[in-house]
Design a protein around this nucleic acid. Structure first.
Lengths: 124, 124
DNA sequence: TGAAGTTGTTTACGGATGTAAATAAAAGGC
DNA sequence: GCCTTTTATTTACATCCGTAAACAACTTCA
């Protein structure tokens, strides 16, 4: 299971968009990533092509163009990236990691409540 | 301030060791990373050299060898890596990130208590 | 004082990554 | 049935990364 993949920084940008809006065409990916990333259309197409090659994306041809969609599950990629980050930066210790993010971010009351609930579920 | 640096995976291994045990000599880094990372001594020396070049490490010569120590603060590198990971994988949303790690890790009662305290401090 | 060993420096090299131009293929308009 | 436009595929290239051997400089032990 979890036929997952290592994604680079730029590849995450593309995959996040595809996961959110799939199926999606190259043109729309280009449009959506043009300003935030300042990528030329050619660059975006290269990313799509590479992601297909590494089997993170699949596509269905329709006439001239492709409908792209994800071939790996977001949850699996998140899990993998999270694990790697945890090991690399926090030596595998989740508690200090959590402490860091709790300290450096701000949360709404709802979010805080929800996090407490999750902690409670851990207890048992 | 925060004259920080992007560290690669392998570089984090070295830096983590240096932060923990500085000042430290190449020989000891080699010894400490030999089994966990399966790196040859030459590889470790290359890493040290590159880290000096990118100004993440500094050194004081003593006779034949160097005493290495960090030239960037761990907290700064952690902050930078954490920010980058948060943006990349969780689109900048800390709450889902925390939820993920709370769900996928196990914590002792002390850790849970401490996390609750941190959440309480957020509230105010 | 020279041989041997240790330590740092240079060079090497294949694969990944960011970035994008050049080219081929195909679809659509006239 | 061609020309133009759009889309995908190939090729390009500098930099970084993991990995390590080759080399030079300096100590140290006989």
């Amino acid at each position: 299971m979890s036929d997952t993949v290592e994604l680079s920084d730029a590849e995450w940008q593309v995959m996040n968009l595809v996961w959110d809006r799939q199926p999606i065409m190259a043109q729309d990916v280009i449009g959506a990533l043009a300003e935030p990333c300042c990528w030329s259309p050619a660059t975006v197409r290269t990313m799509l092509h590479r992601l297909v090659k590494k089997e993170a994306l699949q596509f269905t041809p329709e006439g001239n163009r492709y409908w792209y969609r994800a071939a790996v599950r977001r949850a699996d990629c998140v899990r993998r990236a999270a694990r790697s980050f945890l090991d690399r930066v926090f030596d595998g210790e989740a508690a200090p990691l959590l402490a860091h993010f709790v300290r450096t971010a701000r949360f709404s009351s709802e979010e805080l409540a929800q996090l407490r609930t999750l902690l409670d579920q851990q207890e048992r």
